[in-house]
């Protein structure tokens, strides 16, 4: 943020004061469009969520009554919220480690000098071409109990409450393969060949090179990946809606799914508290991300 003396235009000193004012005015007007959008659709909704959380529509539907912070604590302590939170966390446990391992494995295996390796790299990164809705339709066709080829595999059966979330998670795992692969590969490519060569000269075998040199060197990339996979996991919605519609018996109703269901005016108070809960979670994960990013910058210098 140290930008002194970087302005392309510098006015003569005698008009310095007025030129400063003009520069500030120009600055604010350049910021205005972005800040208006982010204000109206970023900060204002945050204020509204708090407002909706503290008020409930009255019985006649034409006004609001103040219910106070007790409303917030009662929704947060309610089974609905805790259920959604737990299902979201389980979804992370299903998708993040698996996704990370698959992405790493594919990247490690295809990071080598071999004729035609680009073809394999293109295939492994290809799922970035799918949208979450397309991926959900694809997996609907694979695991749906009625028409799916794997519809009756009980470990991922969408028909049973205790396995449905795993079936849904397959969608995210597969859709994220491309992105995780691309990111890990970029991390691997940034490791200087000389370092690996030096380890080899020092008599490090392939496994020791992997665990003692390569993985530590790309650990910042892996941490970054874990964070974005967590954020994606918390924000997943289309797979649940398309594959199970939250069922069976609410077993795949993640926090975002529950919030979406409470968007109608009658339920907006409860939904807003849940959204604030999700905000809290996002806050923690994003702080984690910023900390990691900061560390990485120092790391690279």
């Amino acid at each position: 943020m140290s930008l002194s003396a970087s302005a392309p235009i510098q006015a003569p000193t005698r008009r310095r004061r007025s030129s400063r004012v003009r520069e500030a005015l120009l600055g604010y007007s350049l910021l205005a469009p972005a800040f208006i959008v982010l204000g109206v659709f970023g900060y204002y909704p945050l204020y509204r969520l708090v407002h909706f959380a503290l008020y409930r529509p009255n019985r006649f539907g034409n006004g609001e009554v103040y219910v106070g912070p007790s409303n917030i604590s009662s929704v947060l302590a309610d089974e609905e919220f805790l259920d959604g939170l737990w299902i979201s966390v389980k979804y992370l446990l299903y998708t993040v480690p698996t996704g990370l391992v698959i992405g790493m494995l594919l990247a490690l295996l295809s990071h080598r000098r071999l004729r035609g390796i680009k073809v394999f790299q293109a295939i492994f990164s290809s799922t970035v071409a799918t949208s979450v809705a397309v991926a959900s339709v694809v997996f609907f066709g694979l695991v749906n109990p009625k028409i799916g080829k794997f519809g009756d595999v009980s470990f991922i059966s969408l028909a049973k409450a205790d396995s449905a979330l795993r079936g849904v998670a397959l969608t995210s795992i597969w859709q994220n393969v491309g992105l995780t692969f691309v990111i890990v590969l970029a991390g691997l490519q940034a490791v200087p060949d000389a370092v690996i060569e030096a380890a080899r000269v020092d008599g490090f075998g392939p496994l020791r090179r992997l665990f003692r040199v390569t993985l530590p060197l790309i650990s910042p990339t892996l941490l970054f990946l874990i964070v974005i996979l967590m954020i994606f996991g918390f924000q997943s919605f289309a797979p649940m809606e398309i594959l199970t519609h939250g069922g069976p018996a609410g077993a795949t109703e993640t926090l975002v799914f529950k919030i979406f269901q409470r968007r109608a005016p009658g339920q907006i108070s409860e939904g807003s508290v849940m959204a604030l809960g999700l905000f809290g979670l996002t806050f923690v994960v994003t702080l984690l991300q910023l900390t990691i990013l900061n560390k990485r910058v120092h790391y690279g210098e």
Binding site: F35, P45, L49, F52, F237, I259, R263, S272, L278, T282
Partner: peptide, 26 residues
């Protein structure tokens, strides 16, 4: 400038999943 920049970066904490129902109301 710094305050505004921090305010800007802080909007990363407000993804559409969080702001959804308030924005739908708007």
């Amino acid at each position: 400038k710094t305050v505004l920049f921090v305010l800007l970066i802080a909007t990363l904490l407000l993804p559409i999943e969080v702001t959804l129902i308030a924005n739908i109301r708007t």
